[in-house]
């Protein structure tokens, strides 16, 4: 470290405080806005101190939703988002860890081709293939279903690639020792590979959960009924109404609630998450 001087200390703290304020202020605004009544926003000034309508705002959103903009009650949208985020993250992890297992540990014809095909799809983000994917989902009759929401997003080159790299760092002798210890391929997978990838799985889960939770474009395409609206989609719909002032107090209450699950996931998995990103020793 540089010298421990009072001025530098102050400067460091000042920079940090500014940084935190910069990041945290919008969140604070959202939180405050969700505690005010509808009329507090008409003046055009955003209030900076808490209001008195917290309970009313939140209970209204949870139970009734915002009928004027076609948003169902929040618990429904939160549930949908949760289903979607969990299915995507668990599905992606399950499929990609098995694919990586096959690619790294089995010698079969076309192994490298399979790997490169998966790898090439890394270059195609969802948005690029969204029209053909939509067509497939539509013709399979999966519009307005949970399957339609999640299945097309589950295939993942990134996660497969990540697990491949993880498996490649596991010494080959471990596999050989397991073979001598009488563990077949699946037993090796369950008893050794999975526990050793635990932290990577956790890190990936956090990233994928947030990825799934924040999906907007895809749910927008495949859902037409409010039954399958996700929360991110709902926020957008509420803010986007025509010929009317957006009801910021309700919208911000939704925003605050929408933030809670990803934050909880990060908080509870933080230890594993950080370990998964920095740990190198196998």
């Amino acid at each position: 470290m540089v010298e421990n001087r009072r001025f530098l200390n102050l400067l460091a703290h000042l920079v940090l405080i500014l940084g935190v304020a910069f990041v945290a202020f919008p969140v604070y605004i959202a939180l405050i806005a969700s505690t005010h009544g509808q009329n507090d926003f008409l003046s055009g000034l955003i209030p900076l101190l808490p209001g008195h309508d917290t309970i009313r705002n939140y209970s209204a959103m949870m139970t009734q939703g915002l009928a004027s903009s076609g948003a169902p009650p929040l618990w429904l949208m939160l549930g949908n988002s949760l289903i979607m985020a969990l299915s995507i993250s668990i599905g992606k992890i399950a499929i990609s860890i098995i694919s990586a297992f096959a690619i790294v540990y089995f010698r079969f014809p076309g192994r490298m081709i399979a790997f490169w095909l998966i790898f090439v799809t890394l270059m195609l983000p969802v948005e690029v293939r969204i029209l053909p994917t939509y067509k497939v989902v539509a013709e399979l009759g999966m519009l307005n279903t949970y399957a339609g929401l999640t299945v097309p997003l589950i295939a993942s080159a990134t996660a497969t690639f990540l697990f491949r790299q993880v498996f490649l760092t596991i010494p080959e002798e471990l596999m050989e020792a397991a073979r001598i210890d009488g563990a077949g391929p699946m037993k090796f997978f369950w008893d050794i590979l999975l526990p050793l990838s635990r932290t990577n799985i956790a890190a990936l889960f956090v990233i994928l959960f947030i990825y799934g939770w924040n999906q907007y474009l895809w749910p927008l395409l495949v859902t037409t009924g409010t039954d399958h609206y996700t929360i991110v989609l709902g926020i957008k719909r509420m803010a986007d109404i025509a010929d009317q002032q957006p009801e910021w107090n309700f919208i911000m209450a939704t925003v605050v609630l929408a933030m809670v699950p990803p934050v909880l996931v990060v908080i509870f998995m933080q230890r594993l998450f950080v370990k998964g990103l920095i740990e190198t020793e196998k």
Binding site: A178, I180, A183, L196, E281
Partner: peptide, 20 residues
């Protein structure tokens, strides 16, 4: 015959202990 059925045990250079 599979390694496990050969009735042998092996000690590896890097020990290959299961870390978990």
């Amino acid at each position: 015959v599979e390694p496990a059925e050969r009735d042998i045990a092996m000690v590896f250079q890097n020990y290959a202990l299961y870390p978990h």
